[in-house]
């Protein structure tokens, strides 16, 4: 089974900016928020949240510089 065959994943991959990094951020977003809901505020969850935002901002800038 390919990732494109999974209902939610296929919808995400077909829409948007046609970029796997952004698609991955979109798909992992609920998991990160879910992790925070379950574990609460801790060093680990804060690091994960910072990594998520840094990846989003950094990758947007990287694409801009590369284009």
């Amino acid at each position: 089974m390919k990732s494109r065959d999974i209902p939610v994943v296929s919808a995400v991959l077909e829409a948007g900016a046609d970029d796997r990094v952004f698609d991955s951020l979109l798909l992992t977003g609920p998991l990160v928020i879910g992790l925070i809901v379950v574990l609460g505020r801790s060093l680990v969850t804060e690091a994960v949240a910072i990594a998520y935002i840094a990846a989003f901002v950094g990758y947007t800038l990287y694409r801009g510089v590369r284009t």
Binding site: A11, A15, G16, A17, P30, A49, I50, Y52, F56
Partner: peptide, 25 residues
């Protein structure tokens, strides 16, 4: 679909940024 895609992606980013700033989840 693309509008939803962008909107949802930005929503996740906004939620995490606010949480990091000290707001309860």
């Amino acid at each position: 679909r693309t509008i939803w895609w962008i909107f949802i992606l930005f929503t996740f980013g906004s939620i995490l940024a606010l949480w990091l700033a000290g707001m309860p989840i």
